[in-house]
């Protein structure tokens, strides 16, 4: 796997402490799933809030790292319950 947090933009990654009310917004901004006013608001907040800015950078770096496990034997390693995996398989089959 790649070195952890090599994707972090500048310097050492800090602890992440985004504002409580911004947690999901910053998370969604990190995967570019925000649109419209929610995106504008988050960008505006991140510009003025150091903690949320660091959180956004950290989560973006983390997402790149997570992608590195794609293709590995996730099923065997992560021990989701049998019920949960069955749920996932059923839904996948339905969507096919």
């Amino acid at each position: 796997m790649s070195a952890l947090f090599n994707n972090y933009p500048v310097g050492a990654p800090p602890e992440l402490h985004p504002c409580e009310h911004m947690i999901t917004l910053v998370s969604r901004r990190s995967d570019d799933s925000l649109r419209g006013p929610a995106k504008w608001y988050t960008d505006f907040h991140v510009m003025t809030c150091t903690n949320c800015r660091e959180a956004l950078a950290g989560l973006r770096a983390l997402r790149l790292e997570i992608k590195s496990i794609e293709g590995e034997t996730v099923h065997a390693t992560l021990k989701l319950s049998d019920q949960r995996w069955q749920q996932v398989r059923d839904q996948m089959q339905q969507s096919d």
Partner: peptide, 18 residues
């Protein structure tokens, strides 16, 4: 994601990746 980050950060530091 936040929990994952906090779990991985000490490991990264211990390995001197950062």
């Amino acid at each position: 994601r936040l929990k994952l980050y906090s779990l991985l950060l000490p490991y990264a530091k211990s390995r001197r990746y950062v």
